[in-house]
Amino acid sequence: MSNASSTEPEIVYDKQGNPHEVIDFNNDYEGAKLGFWLFIFTEIMIFGAMFLVFGFYLFQFSPDFIAASEGLNRVLGGTNTFILLLSALSMGLSLVKLRNGKIDESKKFIWITIILATIFLTIKYFEWSHEIHIGIYPGSPTLDALSDGTKLFFGLYFTMTGLHGLHIIIGIGVMFWVLALINSGKITSTNFVVLENTALYWDLVHLVWVFVFPLFYLIY
């Protein structure tokens, strides 16, 4: 465990070989996590504002929202829910493995998360393609001819699932960066805060979907 090594004083040596105890160094675990939580709160404000807009218009245009929700593909949306759930598990397990010193297994679980995230995006691509193919996308003549509530529903649908998808793409990029850091020895079983924060980010992405899915797909 990291406890034994982290409570021992860290010693550095000067050019003359005299030892000095390090009393302040740029390796603040709590600070790194606190900073990341503040970032998560800004993310919640972004998505939270969108959920507020959704809630407001759901109340104003209930029949339109219910009718539009019925047109979404629940099988694909539900599959994506399970894929994100699995990816959150594999991300968590990669952290467990790393902290227990199993570096290779940790990397394997990060790769599994990347693959699951890519499958999520592929499914989303087919879902959006179908909608765009039938003429439903922001500003399309087909959508413009529909009611205000339907326009708002699909505007919010594309904005929120699009922003969520963007977070998935960024998450995949961050996971590749984490893999590179593990390979170069910058993330270890005792210095894992970058992977822990990446896992926090991925849990946030999962958390947003937990609310996006029922509100868009299941209100019919």
Binding site: M1, S2, N3, S5, S6, T7, N27, Y29, F82, L85, A88, L89, G92, L93, L95, V96, R99, N100, T190, N191, F192, V193
Partner: peptide, 21 residues
């Protein structure tokens, strides 16, 4: 401390996973 030191166990992740499923 450098990193948090509470014991880490994969079983919690699996239990919560099945609950979420």
């Amino acid at each position: 401390s450098n990193q948090e030191s509470h014991p880490i166990n994969a079983s919690v992740y699996y239990n919560v996973f099945f609950l979420l499923i």
